[in-house]
Write a protein that binds this DNA or RNA. Structure first.
Lengths: 157, 157
DNA sequence: GAAGTACTACTCGGATAAGAAATGTCCGAGTGCCGTTGG
DNA sequence: CCAACGGCACTCGGACATTTCTTATCCGAGTAGTACTTC
């Protein structure tokens, strides 16, 4: 999986803790010492997916486009990795001596069914956790982290 | 995911249907019109994982190293894709102003926990299906496919 | 006729290129703020 | 003193290199069968 997914999720957590005002990608990248421009590209994908919204100019930056408790991890992964299934079936059963046109195979490929079921389980698991959800768990395991993050993003220049 | 996983699973199905004798990678590749040398590399990985065994020379080829009803799809995926988790946590929470050495974080990263749980669900799903299992389902949905495959691999030269 | 031997054809196995995708970087278009200027 | 205006610093957004991984290919080591030679 693309490593930038981790950056996106952590940045969403920081956005959640920082508060309602927009936060620039420069600040978000600085917090985890990440490449600024590349993180920007990922956040653009989240905007395109309707998870975040962006504003240009001074006092601009990124913010949630909808409440954080409606944003699932699956939403973030789908925005960055693409909505496609991880297993791309090439229908190789249709090639070779026992192959043929699509209408010859009324049932879906048994191999594909297995991977589709596994992917579904994976997606269900990721869809069951929201950003607000994870933030609460992190706060419980490391008390005060939310306030520390908020303080850092609101620090005087 | 690597596309060659599909090739490996289908080739395992063909090995199952073809019978106990070794089958050369040339035959296996020809059946689905795949690149021979590349499929060979994948089957080597399955040998290294103890799923298949190989014999060189005439009458050589690949065969199962253990019963097909003990080979799960997860075994095949792990052999080819590697045993690592799909989500590679970079521990970026330890970088930046609120970071620190590993001993500062007694709990596992909350983000990592989410992806670990999802991967576990994915692995469980793939581990619940064996090669013999899938072959039986395919036979049920397309009666005679097993015999047709067997006949093709045992055809006269 | 039978045993030993060299040969040949076929197999896997690992080392070697080509292509695609992810990763990382750069510069331009747009936007709100602030100081300045004129009424 | 207030309002309008111009400049400016800061932001995102998309276009451009670089590195890594997947995909694909080639040639060599090894093996079993086979035909031949010799006793």
């Amino acid at each position: 999986m693309s490593g930038g997914v981790e950056w996106a999720v952590h940045s969403c957590l920081n956005l959640f803790w920082a508060g309602p005002d927009p936060v620039s990608v420069r600040e978000l990248a600085a917090y985890h010492e990440l490449p600024t421009a590349y993180l920007n590209k990922r956040l653009q994908a989240l905007c395109l997916a309707g998870v975040l919204s962006s504003r240009s100019g001074p006092r601009g930056g990124f913010q949630f486009a909808r409440p954080a408790d409606t944003v699932t991890v699956m939403d973030i992964v789908a925005a960055i990795e693409g909505p496609d299934n991880a297993f791309a079936c090439q229908e190789i059963r249709r090639h070779g001596p026992d192959g043929g046109p699509p209408e010859k195979f009324p049932h879906e490929c048994a191999v594909k069914q297995v991977f589709t079921a596994a992917d579904l389980a994976w997606r269900r698991s990721l869809a069951s956790r929201t950003v607000a959800d994870i933030a609460a768990q992190a706060e419980q395991e490391a008390p005060g982290v939310g306030e520390r993050v908020r303080a850092w993003f609101h620090r005087p220049a």
